[in-house]
Nucleic acid binder design. Structure first.
Length: 271
DNA sequence: AATCGCGCCTGACGGC
DNA sequence: TGCCGTCAGGCGCGAT
């Protein structure tokens, strides 16, 4: 499922194919995604050159002179670059056809993803305006987490998965980062010390960087733009490993539910 | 203000 | 073989 590393892998994969290319047309086959996809995308984007390909959190931003396309992969979305005449398959909802004969194809079986358009600064869009810092930026560090968490009673795992606190940390990497930092996922966020948040911020950066290096994590359906899966799965310490021995101490990994989501941790290494 | 639970949606999988 | 129930989950939103 796409978290920040998968989205960044996608961004890097499509950027060389899109930058400075011209959009010939937009083919929309399915408008019912998380929010209705605007039907006038072709009118807005046809003839427009692609000026920039950015990522903010898990959102991808395709900027043209007339406005920006805002893409979100939800949890089953993927983007590929293909020859424009490749026949679409069942869940291929959108094509951005380029004048060079290639096209960007958006696929999303579960349709939790999003395709939106804004004529204004996409970073000021309602969905992006209130997002927290990028986890790989300098603004994101232990001091920030410590200060932001004071007075909060929510569990630390849910705290770091809150996109208003920090973007891009989803269920997989939250569990993995907490393991690396030696922190129990249920610890109350407002009671953790600065020292522990220092360790956690470093762990988040470390796990996200490593995952980007590996091309993301493929569990079911994530593939990079070239169709290859991510290889980070082999490096997971706790996620999806309930009952299996901890890589550090051999204690069986435990699975609990936190905020209606599966969490995995080592009861010996994480306190 | 912070937190919690809901609902969107399909595919994989296990049981019968 | 096929059907059915369960689970997976990002994240905005409404309720508390």
């Amino acid at each position: 499922m796409p978290e920040l590393p998968e989205v960044e892998t996608t961004r890097r994969g499509i950027e060389p194919h899109l930058l400075r290319q011209t959009i010939k047309k937009v083919i929309l086959r399915q408008t019912r995604l998380r929010w209705p996809v605007p039907r006038n995308l072709n009118q807005k984007l046809a003839g427009q050159p692609v000026l920039a390909l950015q990522r903010r959190g898990k959102y991808l931003l395709v900027t043209t002179p007339r406005g920006s396309l805002i893409l979100h992969l939800g949890m089953s979305g993927s983007i590929r670059i293909l020859p424009a005449n490749t026949p679409p398959e069942k869940h291929d909802h959108l094509d951005i056809v380029l004048t060079n004969g290639q096209c960007l194809r958006f696929r999303d079986p579960r349709r939790f993803g999003a395709v939106l358009f804004t004529s204004a600064d996409p970073l000021q869009h309602k969905l992006l305006r209130h997002l927290g810092p990028e986890p790989l930026s300098r603004a994101f560090n232990g001091k920030y987490l410590y200060e932001e968490s004071r007075g909060r009673k929510v569990a630390v795992k849910l705290f770091i998965m809150n996109s208003k606190v920090v973007v891009g940390v989803g269920n997989i990497y939250a569990s993995e980062a907490l393991f690396l930092a030696g922190i129990h996922p249920k610890r109350i966020s407002g009671r953790l010390t600065l020292e522990r948040y220092d360790k956690l911020a470093r762990a988040i950066k470390k796990v996200l960087r490593a995952a980007i290096r590996q091309g993301g994590t493929t569990l079911r359906d994530f593939t990079a733009t070239d169709g290859k899966p991510g290889y980070f799965r082999q490096k997971l310490n706790v996620y999806g490993r309930a009952g299996q021995p901890c890589n550090v101490c051999s204690t069986p990994i435990r699975q609990i539910t936190l905020g209606q989501r599966s969490s995995y941790y080592c009861p010996h290494c994480q306190k």
